[in-house]
Amino acid sequence: MRPKIGDIFVYIFIVVLVGLSFLGLKAMGTHKGKAVVRIEVDGKLVETFEMPDLKDTGAFREIPVDMNEDEFNVVRISSKGIDISDANCPDRLCVYSPAIKTPGQSIICIPHKLIVRITGETPKDGDVDDTAS
């Protein structure tokens, strides 16, 4: 009934996993260039835009995403970041997910196969448009 010596290794393993996932997330987020928000449904990109400045209240808006006639999610941009303000999926876990704002983070809605993620777009070397701007 009492804990045995090996239990400590289970907890060490958990701490290592948590550490690794933070490292993995960081590695995915360290692209150079502007952060880009991608909204994908069933693996297909439906909308993408540059990550707006969260201090700019003018950028705040809601983007409805319709999967088909009776399935929808509403992506919201607010001062907290990007989150899902409404959806009619059965579990509504996406609505309860916290807002995201840094590259590498994502919100998923499993029943609707929706994923909202922030990626760092790596600019190509010697890109004319990039140097011009």
Binding site: I14, V18, F22, M28, S106, I115
Partner: peptide, 24 residues
């Protein structure tokens, strides 16, 4: 499975820490 279905390993990294806490 979710990472594979959504084609993004980022899902694993994002949700693992909080789920590990619950798993304990």
């Amino acid at each position: 499975a979710a990472s594979w279905i959504f084609g993004s390993i980022g899902i694993l990294f994002t949700y693992l820490p909080i789920l590990m806490l619950a798993a304990v």
